[in-house]
């Protein structure tokens, strides 16, 4: 039998629930403002740019660039060290914190700032999927 997932799990709130439900369906959803036309992240109840409450959910392309990163060498629950903690910038312009999924233990030599990455979905439990990213060849 597989060990239960030991990592920290998000507990969605009303304004973030569509994002997490989208992730479960392997869709990366972003809230867009119907008034100023801009997306934002993380999902809020109002647009942080113009403070409108009229928001729509739209699927993002999943393409992004590695904006910055760190390689954690200390053990953390649910992770095997070393692993990459990344800030990615989505094609739509917003940034999010996530992980880079690598085929080999990560080294600084294997990573470069602004390298192209794409979303992958990690079904860590039956009810939670974490959007992560992998380098594009």
């Amino acid at each position: 039998m597989q060990e239960p997932y030991a990592g920290a799990l998000p507990r969605p709130t009303p304004e973030t629930l569509p994002f997490w439900e989208g992730a479960r369906q392997h869709r990366l959803l972003l809230p867009w403002c119907r008034d100023c036309g801009r997306p934002h992240f993380y999902p809020r109840s109002l647009c942080p740019h113009c403070h409108s409450e009229v928001l729509d959910w739209r699927q993002a392309s999943g393409r992004a660039k590695l904006h910055s990163y760190a390689i954690n060498h200390k053990q953390a629950k649910g992770f095997t060290a070393p692993y990459v903690i990344a800030i990615v910038e989505l094609e739509e312009g917003v940034r999010m914190l996530s992980n880079l999924v690598m085929s080999a233990p990560p080294t600084p030599e294997a990573l470069f700032i602004d390298m192209p990455v794409e979303v992958v979905f990690d079904d860590v439990t039956d009810s939670v999927t974490l959007p992560k990213f992998r380098p594009l060849a």
Partner: peptide, 30 residues
């Protein structure tokens, strides 16, 4: 786990200040 930090940082293995204070550094280097 319901806070912004609990939803959008902690699930990605941020554990302790070294894992978050380090993130701006590589961008500055670049």
């Amino acid at each position: 786990p319901s806070g912004p930090n609990g939803q959008f940082e902690a699930p990605f293995g941020t554990s302790g200040a070294a894992t978050t204070y380090s993130l701006p550094v590589m961008r500055h280097f670049h």
